[in-house]
Design a binder for these strands. Structure first.
Lengths: 194, 194
DNA sequence: ATCATTTCTTAATCTAGGTTAAGTATTTTC
DNA sequence: GAAAATACTTAACCTAGATTAAGAAATGAT
């Protein structure tokens, strides 16, 4: 499987020697998930982080009324994990599911810890990745506190132009925090006034 | 100023030699902020991270209608920064303000970068701190997507029992995402049914 | 190609939470 | 310790977004 995307991703923040790359390759497992297959499901203890080589994943929770809430989409070149479960080694409440057939590079928690010992600069790499992720979640929380549904939808369209046409509208609704019916209404209104 | 809390905080995830501690002390600046004084204000480019030795800070944004939204409270033993502005070195939209007279240890971005070079295990320390913070924001976003205002308030009370009586109720409202009037209504209803 | 399933739309009705406004504590300041 | 400022409460009314329901469009499976 072609993992050049993974190593280009590393190269964005640190530079690895050929030897380090070779060592790293041994720590990852490459796998294809069919559309609608789960990488993990709520209630399980998460054992690995995933990097998307191709396709798209989504991380979502299901609340006590059975409604889904999308915490993140992971198109190609993105990292995704149930950080809560992975760190605490307690059962998580995140489902990570393939939205289409998806190629991923997986690294187990054990191997990730080994990796930090052997190649400490990866500690920096993941610090930076996580910092960026933190900023994005802070921003999104702030948007949920301060913007209307309409504004959140417009922002989503601007931020993820490539996803808009590729993923079902109800998933976007579950991401911005409205019902599919209301998003449909918003879009109809937007189309009318354009 | 007594900075033992800071070094106990480091000790939760890494162990430092006496020499390292001594070096680190030179990188921090100790400062007292009077109640209502700002560490940073929106529009400024953030230059430092803060650790609270005593007192309490709050990080909040002001939206286009003039409403405040609290992104985080930082009581003693907490780290706080405008991560977006600090990382991007662009003007931020976070205000960090002292809620009472507050002692903080400040480290500049420059010194933090130096620190990573000189004592690489701090890279690990901050990776872990940021991982935990990420998990907390994810959880909170999920709560905002899936819980009612009443449930979010009850969860806040359970999570921050020490803050409940120390901070104004309108700040809690601005944290859980409702108006002060509505929170007051919730509390009245809760008191009635108890 | 056809049937079944899923997704999207529209519309009527409902409700959690917002707005406005006025009054009552509680702090802060001098 | 009085006046001013801020925080909290209550209540009437309002609205963004939810719910319910039913039909239309698109997708998928055989």
């Amino acid at each position: 499987m072609d993992d050049s995307l993974l190593f280009n991703n590393f190269a964005k923040h640190i530079s690895l020697t050929k030897a380090e790359e070779k060592y790293l390759k041994t720590l990852f497992e490459y796998k294809v998930f069919k559309s609608k297959e789960f990488l993990i499901q709520q209630g399980e203890i998460s054992k690995q982080s995933a990097f998307v080589l191709n396709g798209c994943l989504r991380g979502y929770t299901i609340d006590s009324n059975g409604f889904e809430h999308v915490l993140s989409f992971a198109p190609k070149d993105w990292w995704i994990a149930d950080m809560y479960s992975l760190l605490s080694q307690k059962p998580g409440n995140l489902n990570i599911e393939a939205m289409v057939d998806t190629e991923v590079a997986l690294i187990s928690k054990t191997n990730q810890d080994k990796m930090y010992e052997k190649v400490p600069k990866l500690e920096r790499f993941f610090r930076i990745i996580i910092e960026k992720s933190l900023v994005a979640y802070q921003q999104r929380l702030n948007d949920n506190l301060s913007l209307t549904a309409q504004e959140r939808y417009m922002k989503f369209c601007k931020t993820y132009p490539q996803l808009i046409n590729d993923i079902p509208q109800k998933q976007i609704a579950a991401y911005i925090g409205v019902t599919p019916e209301f998003l449909s209404k918003l879009r109809a209104k937007q189309a009318r006034t354009k």
